[in-house]
Simulated scan of single mutants.
Amino acid sequence: MSDDIHEVYAVCYASHGRKRAENYIFGDPHDEMTSISYYVWVIKGPHGTFVCDTGFDEAAAKERARKIIHPVGEGLKALGVEPDKVDHVIATHMHWDHAGNYDLFPNARYHVQDTEMAYCTGRCMCHQTLRMPFSEADVHAMVKKVFNYRVDFHDGDDEIAPGITVHKIGGHSKGLQCVRVKTQRGYVVVSSDACHLYSHIDEGRVFPITYSVGDTLEGYKKLLKLASSRHHMVPGHDPEVRKLYPAAKPGLEDWVMRLDVAPRV
């Protein structure tokens, strides 16, 4: 049996209603309400369990006017994953909705890009427009992990374990990385915020919060190159993921979806 084939899951823990125009630079002519979903991702295989991003907690949800459906820890436990037993957390970037719950994984090593750590602790954070998507507490917590020797830094593309690699994309955040996973159906790419919605990559559009529009658009090409097909690329906030992919097991519909099987397309 191959030692580099993994299962991949999307755990939806929160949602947020918003106008469709809020999802795109230059807006959208369809002035209607829509929603975005918030996920963390779980990779399970012969080398253990890897959690991709850590979401946000109830305090952050209240501060940012978001609604948690199921706390992140509950979703992990529904998959049989105990947070204190997780050995590795891949931080795609340090925005507040991806880097919270920083005490949930007390024994994990964190994987982050050099560029992202420099970005969220450097001069750009002196500008409110760039600092807005970051939480000071989340950044402090990651710095503390650095000084506790619990962070592995990556510079560009790198292997985390056989069949699991990270790839620097940038764009939405300066040091954002996606995760490529070898599965039974080919290479699945967890894009995180390198692509928020299917419509972004399909229509060449950009989410309003971005460090570089050019890097975002070029990043779409890289995502599609890394994935075995367009249907192997999983966006970071699209509610359609909950409809396209089957539940990990009965009772977890619309909550925990399995991504290493073919979507309903």
Rank of each mutant, 00 (worst) to 15 (best):
I5Y: 07
H6W: 05
E7I: 00
V8W: 09
C12Y: 04
C12E: 08
A14V: 04
S15K: 14
S15P: 00
R18T: 15
R18M: 15
R18H: 14
K19I: 05
R20V: 07
N23C: 13
D28A: 12
P29R: 11
T34C: 12
S35P: 02
I36S: 03
I36F: 05
S37C: 15
W41T: 08
I43P: 02
P46V: 10
T49P: 14
T49I: 15
F50P: 05
D53C: 08
F56L: 06
A60G: 12
I68E: 00
I69R: 09
I69M: 13
G75T: 13
G80M: 10
V81Y: 06
D84I: 04
K85Q: 15
D87L: 14
H88Q: 10
V89L: 00
V89Y: 02
T92C: 12
H95G: 07
H98A: 07
N101L: 12
D103K: 09
D103F: 01
N107C: 08
R109A: 04
R109L: 04
V112Q: 02
V112A: 01
Q113G: 10
E116K: 00
A118S: 06
Y119K: 03
R123Y: 13
Q128D: 13
P133A: 05
F134N: 03
S135D: 13
E136M: 05
E136W: 06
A137F: 12
H140I: 14
A141T: 02
V143I: 14
Y149P: 02
V151H: 00
H154K: 02
H154T: 03
D155M: 03
D157I: 07
A161D: 03
A161E: 08
T165R: 03
T165E: 06
H167E: 10
K168T: 06
I169D: 04
G171D: 04
L176C: 06
C178Q: 11
R180S: 15
V181W: 01
K182Y: 06
T183Q: 09
T183W: 12
Y187I: 00
V188W: 11
H196G: 11
L197Y: 15
H200Q: 11
H200D: 11
P208N: 07
T210H: 15
G214A: 08
D215P: 05
D215I: 02
R230F: 07
H232P: 06
M233H: 05
G236R: 10
K249P: 01
K249E: 10
G251E: 00
D254L: 00
V256C: 11
M257H: 13
M257P: 02
R258P: 14
V261K: 02
A262C: 08
A262M: 11
V265T: 08
